[in-house]
Design a protein around this nucleic acid. Structure first.
Lengths: 325, 325
DNA sequence: CTGTTAGCGCCTTCAA
DNA sequence: TTGAAGGCGCTAACAG
């Protein structure tokens, strides 16, 4: 691989001049810059990141730590992060923390060992990775005091709540997957806030929650709002099995707008994160911190967007219908 | 950050000794090794990968190029690759080729610029990234001549075909998403091979294919085999809309066993890739190539596994029933 | 405007 | 068994 010394000797100049010409650090005549660049491209010269890293103390690499790479949001976050990072000539190294807090710490350490310049962490639910030795951005939820950037989970919940209320539902079930998750708790809190105060709300969690759905509906619930699309699909399936149909008998909502949401029938009403903007803000903040800029922006909260599809409908039947067993 | 020189001077020995002690290159007394290691951990010493990379010409980083990071398989591949790579002290840098072949080349180049020691490529459908300047592993499908490791897509298709035949279906629709994809074509070919030769097979593709489903069923088809779980979910939804139920009226199969397959109702019969083994083989092959071992293993094909759930059933109704529609 | 020099952290000769 | 020295590719400080 061609190196800077090669170019220098080919042109009969010093390596410093080549370096300056290439990095545009001025101090070199325009025509010399031309010659150097010409020769460089002839040789297919690529600066050695290793050399530069050693010299500058910066690797040009950012680490991404996810609670679980199979997290349905990982692909989108990774994609956007990688795009945004590319624009800044940064690379993204991934690390999986495999669902447990201890591995999370190890994952972070592996990244640090590799000399990443900064880290983006999407924490395990219920954990708070302490301060790190490199600039760090945490993508979690607004109620996490360490959070740097996040979707407005509570706001998203509120959108759902308001929609349900506007559809005239007065008895609703909020279904979460795991109350340990701060994100989910915030979503639930948001839903409550969005629902009219007179609404009869029942909060259910996990597998038992799903089992309790049919009885709840029999008892008069007309809407189910869940904290994730996957959960919504599960509910849908369960209801089908019970002979309850969406949205005729109950309205159903998801969260996150995963790819399969539009493949469902009825297509799922849900709420979408603007992952692109989150990635943008995250990298921006991270880069500022890396460059030592003192005025870090306050933790940002990116609004979620309601995606109204066909799994929700206006309440048509009387609240205390009892035809469904 | 503590460096090797630091340890050396603390202990009054030379850097060479420290280096040897730490890397276990022998030539150092056992007790000196002890002292060095002790001091190193006291100082929280971490070898500088940059220094090592510069010296050795190897970055210790592997690149992962995916056709589209939102590809539903990406999470699992990334996770396994990252686990396996970790075991070998390698990092994984991701690059997104955003669905188009030109970006794919650029993505690869960005990785090369970063000095990755090798690349894992999951090619865009219909493309064949040429040979690279670093060791490369291609995860595609057996019929791609450049392929290094892959799931046995045709074999998976055959499993599905055989299952359908064993369930006594004689008129089946094979539904694909995009015939440009070699993977999908291989899956379809496998399905054909697995079905009894007397089977009446209709091959459909894409959105129009889905539209053509109800007529096909009305005309007597009793099973639909698709080339992806997402497609299967779409089909499911479409059939529901048409008042056709799975598996009573038609059997339905997916491909890949994505997370939502078990959230569907009925739970989807599908075929799963052993992504872990694929990742294993891929990294193994890549590392061998990087270490200059001449005897690269032949392209490996990892068997797929049939996951029989509840979306398929024995043919019960007469083939030419016409109660539907 | 350009050249010389030094050194980032590490490892690998070669010499003691 | 250990030490000294050089150099991987690059950039920054200082000379010319």
């Amino acid at each position: 691989m061609a190196n800077i010394k090669q170019i220098a000797s080919d042109l009969g100049v010093s390596v410093a001049t080549v370096s300056n010409a290439l990095t545009g650090k001025g101090r070199v005549s325009a025509q010399m810059v031309e010659r150097v660049k010409a020769r460089a491209s002839e040789l297919g010269y690529r600066p050695s990141l290793a050399g530069r890293a050693l010299r500058s103390g910066q690797s040009g690499i950012l680490g991404l730590v996810m609670p679980d790479l199979t997290n349905p949001l990982f692909p989108r976050i990774a994609q956007h992060l990688s795009t945004v990072a590319d624009d800044r000539q940064m690379g993204i190294l991934i690390a999986d923390s495999r669902g447990n807090p201890k591995e999370q710490t190890q994952a972070i350490n592996r990244l640090l060992d590799r000399g990443v310049d900064g880290v983006v962490i999407v924490p395990q639910k219920g954990t708070a990775p302490g301060p790190q030795s490199v600039p760090t951005v945490i993508i979690n939820t607004a109620s996490d005091p360490d959070n740097s950037v996040c979707a407005d989970h509570a706001g998203g919940g509120r959108l759902i709540g308001e929609l349900i209320t506007s559809l005239r539902h007065h008895r609703v079930v909020i279904l979460g997957d795991d109350p340990v998750s701060e994100v989910q708790r915030d979503r639930v809190a948001g839903m409550r806030a969005g629902l009219a105060s007179a609404t009869d709300v029942q909060e259910l969690w996990g597998k038992e929650g799903i089992e309790a759905l049919a009885p709840a509906i029999a008892a008069g619930a007309t809407a189910i709002t869940t904290t994730s699309d996957l959960l919504a699909l599960r509910v849908q399936s369960h209801l089908t099995r019970c002979g309850i149909s969406v949205p005729e008998d109950v309205s159903l909502t998801g969260f996150d707008d995963l790819p399969f949401a539009t493949a469902m029938h009825p297509m799922l009403t849900t709420v979408a994160q603007d992952v692109g903007q989150i990635a943008d803000l995250a990298i921006d903040r991270l880069m500022r911190a890396i460059q030592g800029q003192p005025d870090l922006p306050a933790p940002a909260t990116v609004p979620m967007r309601l995606v109204t599809r066909y799994s929700t409908s206006t309440l048509r039947r009387p609240t205390n219908l009892e035809t469904i067993k």
